[in-house]
Computed example of a mutant assay.
Amino acid sequence: MFVRTERLTVRRFSSADAERFAAYRSDPAVAHFQGWEAPVSLADAQQQVERFAQADPEAAGWFQYAVALDGVLIGDLGVNLHENLMQADIGFTFATEYQGQGYASEAVRGLLQYLFVDRALHKVSAECDARNTASALLLERVGFTREGLRLSHTWFKGEWTDDLLYGYLNPQQPTRGQSA
């Protein structure tokens, strides 16, 4: 376990998560702004979950965290740790039936606490499709600052999309112009 919040556990994936993972990632509403196409087969989900379970959360690159409520997988959080091991990008995916209840905000806040306090990262960034207002609002709600808009920047699922850019500096570390 990496993070425990009031209602959730943010932990490593296990093989037992594959069926739930395939189910929510196969939902077209969940996949709409994500980089995969629905449906996700159980065989593909099993391979992905196995790869997630083997990954090293302290190594540069993507690491996927499972988010569980009362032991049931309800979503996942991705962290792309940069080569410098001092900054990261994040992403999040939650099953439709668990959206709009504060679970994603709670999980992201818990993950940020872990990344800033336990891992001492300097900055966490995120980006989302500008049409994905729910994700943009979540990022702002948990403390991210909107840092930019890239117009017609990403060719995504057959069309050019605008990208919103967000950043969150570690509040416990000095920023530019401040001494340690």
Results as ranks from 00 to 15, higher is better:
Gln113Asp: 15
Thr93Ile: 11
His122Arg: 13
Leu137Met: 14
Ser105Phe: 02
Thr133Asp: 12
Ile90Asn: 02
Gln113Gly: 12
Gln54Trp: 03
Leu81Asn: 00
Tyr103Phe: 13
Glu140His: 13
Ser135Val: 13
Leu85Ser: 05
Ser105Tyr: 01
Gln54Met: 11
Gln54Asp: 07
Leu139Asn: 02
Gln87Gly: 12
Glu58Cys: 08
Tyr103Lys: 06
Ala107Asp: 06
Ile90Ser: 04
Asn84Tyr: 04
Thr133Gly: 11
Leu69Asp: 01
Ala104Cys: 11
Val67Met: 04
Leu112Ile: 09
Pro57Arg: 06
Asn132Ala: 10
Asn84Val: 07
Ile74Gln: 01
Thr133Ser: 14
Gly71Asp: 03
Arg119Asn: 13
Cys128Asp: 04
Lys123Tyr: 06
Gly78Met: 06
Asn80Ala: 04
Leu115Asn: 01
Glu127Asn: 15
Phe92Leu: 10
Ala60Glu: 11
Val72Phe: 00
Ala120Glu: 15
Asn132Arg: 13
Gln99Val: 10
Arg141Pro: 11
Glu97Phe: 05
Ala59Glu: 05
Val117Met: 13
Ser135Met: 13
Tyr65Gly: 01
Leu121His: 01
Leu138Gln: 11
Asn132Gly: 12
Gly100His: 05
Met86Asp: 12
Gln99Lys: 07
Asn80His: 09
Gly102Ala: 04
Thr96Cys: 09
Gly100Asn: 08
Glu127Ala: 14
Asp56Glu: 05
Gly75Leu: 01
Gly91Gln: 12
Phe63Arg: 03
Glu127Asp: 15
Asp70Leu: 01
Leu81Tyr: 03
Val72His: 05
Gly102Pro: 07
Gln113Asn: 14
Glu83Met: 10
Arg109Tyr: 07
Ile74Lys: 00
Val124Trp: 02
Val117Gln: 13
Ala136Phe: 12
Asp118Ser: 14
Leu85Pro: 02
His82Ala: 08
Gly75Ser: 03
Ala55Pro: 04
Arg131Ala: 15
Ala95Asp: 12
